[in-house]
Design a binder for these strands. Structure first.
Length: 497
RNA sequence: GGCGGCAUAGCCAAGUGGUAAGGCAGGGGCCUGCAAAGCCUUUACCCCCAGUUCGAAUCUGGGUGCCGCCUCCA
């Protein structure tokens, strides 16, 4: 089997073939840093992280670059509103972005280029476009001449005529500087009081799309393998990037264009302008009634995202939150199986310092589970299909764990369980799903001896048919996080929750 | 108006020609003094109509409904 992925440019699933065998150069359009990230951003970056991890799993060396747009109208507006310096704003939200992504277990990029640090590259590119007749200066601004680029519209699948007709009602007056209504700014002349940079056209700052063209080239080279982003970037952002880059390149900008679907609320796109957004930190930090007052687990958020195919919309609802949290609980129990039962199963490496680290696991290859996982993921990163395998493994392990807890032993071979667990841990890691045991719990509360003593009291009460007393003791233990298991033969086992 | 996408159980979601994966939620049973935990078990003819085919959720045509992009946006 080989990997196929959906290319927005061709609107088909294509076999994945990189420019340099074994290497993937991937660029993902990052955020404009003027506010906290919402769930739409979370989905996008979780998806691209999953893609990156899977490519690595498949043996590719992946170079992953993601930019920060740190100069833009929205940043300046925000600064004007709050009275802060605009660079203070960008610093705050770059830090917030990093924090949010770390909580979601998103790997850090190999580079995070920033527009303000790429000014020489940006200016050089605009100059080159101007020299070759793809751009023209007008009163300190520089515009891209869309009519000069024959392929304009190829990514979004539309023609200039169509777009002009569609946009005719919306074209701003006062844009006489443009030769064609769809020409877009590469460089904007400085307005009084705004930050600006020296350029051949006077003081100014870059337009939105040019930074990515310049930074992709600077950090990854002429033709990259994957260029990714949200569906809302197809037009105009990525269309314009293609126009800018390919006008001066002898190659394509990117071999594959990938776009993720939206997070919706009531089937409407979650977005800043609609005001229907929930920020990542708001969701993860607020106890929720649907979760019985618990906080939503970041891994459950990751699961929520990966349970839908990345190109399809996902609706953000209370039901979905609860389902994802519960699903994560199931998966988590499977992931913790080795920590919980590795000792009683006498796994020799149980006490190794890096026990549970997927990097050190050698799972049986090619096991049936791995094959099914890869078959799903090879088909345009079908993570819901891949999760099926994880859930089957996790449920099987959970069952085995319960048998061990309730009966003290299981007929299943220890080696079999170990390999199932390792497979689960490794494949989960490919999706960025990981759980660590809670080391604090066993040392808190009642001592083992105190618990055993209470259990004996309860047994005595039960034999005397004093069920009021026996239930009282059971409730007392329950309140302290101790669950009793009355076994069929009259024996009692217990565990801390 | 132009272009694109989606429609599968209560909810979410795979499946692109051979009679429906998985998750969540729910039902039933076993066990129990009662519970809890656990174990076992169970729940769909795939938006509508017509067509192609031995056979379609899957292909074709026509409907209906919803969404996205065309303006900043992951």
């Amino acid at each position: 089997m080989s990997l196929k992925l959906y290319n927005t440019l061709t609107r088909t699933k294509e076999p994945f073939a990189t420019l340099v065998p074994g290497q993937v150069r991937m660029y993902c359009c990052g955020v404009t840093v003027y506010d906290y990230c919402h769930l739409g951003h979370a989905r996008s970056y979780i998806v691209w992280d999953m893609v990156r991890r899977y490519l690595q799993w498949r043996g590719y060396e992946v170079q992953y670059v993601q930019n920060y747009t740190d100069i833009d109208d929205k940043i300046l507006n925000r600064a004007a509103q709050t009275g802060q310096d605009w660079q203070e704003i960008t610093q705050i939200f770059i830090r917030a972005y990093a924090e949010d992504m770390a909580r979601l277990n998103i790997l850090t990029a190999d580079a995070y280029p920033q527009a303000t640090a790429a000014m020489p590259d940006i200016i050089a590119l605009i100059q080159r476009l101007e020299e070759q007749g793809f751009a023209y200066a007008a009163q300190g601004d520089v515009y891209y001449a869309v009519e000069r680029f024959p392929g304009y519209g190829k990514l979004s699948g539309r023609s200039l005529d169509q777009m002009e007709a569609g946009a005719s009602g919306r074209l701003e007056p006062g844009e006489q500087k443009k030769h064609h209504p769809l020409d877009f700014a590469l460089w904007k002349a400085a307005k009084p009081g705004e930050p600006s940079w020296e350029s051949p056209w006077g003081l100014g700052r870059p337009g939105w799309h040019i930074e990515c063209s310049a930074m992709v080239h600077a950090d990854l080279g002429a033709e990259i393998d994957i260029h990714a982003g949200g569906s809302d970037l197809v037009f105009p952002h990525h269309e314009n990037e293609i126009a800018q880059s390919e006008a001066v390149l002898t190659s394509r900008l990117a071999r594959y264009w990938m776009h993720n679907g939206f997070v919706t609320v009531g089937d409407e796109k979650m977005s800043k302008s609609l005001g229907n957004f929930t920020t990542i930190r708001q969701l993860l930090d607020t106890p929720l009634p649907v979760l019985g007052g618990e906080v939503f687990d970041p891994m459950a958020l990751r699961l929520f995202v990966l349970q839908a195919q990345y190109r399809k919309p996902i609706d953000f609802t209370e039901d979905a939150i609860a389902a994802a949290q519960h699903s994560w609980q199931t998966l988590k129990e499977g992931l913790l199986f080795g920590y919980e039962y590795g000792g009683s199963l006498q796994w020799p490496d149980r006490n190794d310092p890096d026990f549970g680290n997927p990097a050190n696991m050698r799972i049986p290859n090619p096991s049936e589970a791995v094959q099914r996982f890869e078959a799903a993921m090879d088909d345009d990163f079908n993570s819901p299909g891949g999760l099926v395998v994880l859930f089957e493994l996790a449920k099987e392990l959970r069952k085995e764990g319960n048998v061990l807890t309730h009966q003290g032993a299981t007929p299943t071979a220890s080696d079999t369980l170990k390999s199932q667990w390792q497979t689960l841990v490794c494949l989960s890691q490919v999706l960025g799903l990981a759980a660590q045991p809670d080391t604090a719990k066993s040392s808190e509360g009642l001592s083992d001896q105190a618990i055993e003593a209470l259990i004996e009291q309860r047994q005595a009460a039960r034999q005397a048919k004093d069920y009021g007393e026996s239930d009282r003791i059971r409730d007392q233990l329950k309140a302290q996080g101790i669950t009793l298991i009355d076994q069929a033969g009259g024996g009692i086992r217990w565990h801390r929750d």
